[in-house]
Amino acid sequence: MTITNRDPSIARVARFRLTTPGPSPLGNASCAAATGPLPGICATNTAGALLHVEHVHENRLPARTTATTVITTTVRPDAQPGTYTITPFGGFSDTGLDKSETFAPQTFTFTVQPRQADLAVSLSASAPLLGGGIDYTATATNHGPAPLNSATLTTRLPDQTTTVTGLPSTCTYQDSTKTVTCSTGSLTVTGSAQFAFRAQLGLLTVGQNLHATATRAASSPEDPGPANDTATTTCSALTSLLISC
């Protein structure tokens, strides 16, 4: 924003201010002077004024000179989605006479998008020698851009599964559907949660394929990328006890 002192006299202070109605979705702010005096104050006002910036140069802004400020601010982590209106103001004071005016355009808007956390799912498998079972590790990784509040991951095991051992405390097993269900809790951006367990299998047929699929069943906030919500792995029965993954 730029303000020009068009009066023939010296202005003591040039001021810039942005305002938003209601609770502001914007947080910390920084200010930089592009031309003219340096900003003396750059602060967030919780009473509805988003920013109040004062430009002071030896307490003077010469006649017919300009001062320009660049204001940078960030969206608060708890900002509610929606469209917000900002009104910029500019003015100066000269020997006790205050003058102010709005900039053109008088208002402008910006939109806060819903927070999203892209959760990627992977599934690995290995078979212990002559163990008659398969060790699975289901992994959920948060690719952001927001932190993950919580998520539910399900792993559909092979139909030949008879029982599941080594389940983490945040996982349960439903035998009727051959499904392990796990909860992640919160995850930072790039954070991940792993769930390892063993599926014990019944009598196998040579050459039989053993499929398992891990899926993001639910998560908060919204997941914008369903393409990486599912992962599948396949093992094969070499003999009734020997499995290859």
Rank of each mutant, 00 (worst) to 15 (best):
G144K: 12
C171Y: 04
I86M: 09
T154S: 07
S93K: 02
G91N: 02
D135N: 12
T107G: 01
T172F: 01
T111M: 04
G144S: 10
T172R: 12
S186Q: 12
T139R: 07
C182D: 03
Q174E: 13
T155W: 01
Q106N: 09
G144E: 11
A146F: 05
T85E: 12
P88H: 05
Q113N: 14
R115C: 12
P88Y: 05
G132H: 05
G91R: 00
R115N: 12
Y84P: 07
G166R: 04
T161W: 03
Y173T: 06
A120Y: 11
D94K: 13
G166L: 03
P88D: 11
P128L: 00
Y173N: 03
S100N: 04
T83C: 12
L129P: 09
P145D: 08
T181Q: 06
P114L: 07
T85Y: 05
Q113G: 07
T188L: 14
Q194E: 15
L148K: 08
R156W: 05
A104Q: 15
Q106H: 00
P114W: 07
V121Y: 05
A127H: 00
T83N: 07
Q106R: 11
T154C: 03
A120G: 09
S93G: 06
A127T: 11
P145G: 10
T161S: 03
T83I: 14
D98W: 04
G82D: 10
V121W: 02
S176M: 14
G191Y: 03
Y136P: 02
T95D: 15
P147M: 04
F108Y: 15
T154H: 01
T139C: 05
L97H: 13
L123I: 02
G91T: 03
T184S: 11
K99Q: 07
L129I: 11
T190M: 13
A120E: 12
C171L: 09
F103R: 09
T165W: 04
S93W: 02
Q106T: 11
Y84Q: 10
Q160R: 11
A140Y: 02
R115E: 14
A146T: 13
T87I: 07
G90N: 04
T170C: 05
L123S: 01
T163G: 07
F103A: 14
L167M: 09
G166H: 08
H143K: 15
T85N: 08
F110D: 11
A117D: 13
T85R: 15
L129T: 12
H143D: 08
A151T: 07
L97P: 00
T170N: 15
G191W: 02
P158C: 00
L148S: 09
H143T: 14
V112D: 08
H143M: 14
Q160T: 06
P128H: 00
G131N: 04
D159S: 12
Q113H: 13
L129M: 07
L97R: 15
A127S: 13
K99F: 01
C182N: 03
G133N: 13
P145V: 11
S176P: 08
T165V: 09
T102S: 02
K99H: 06
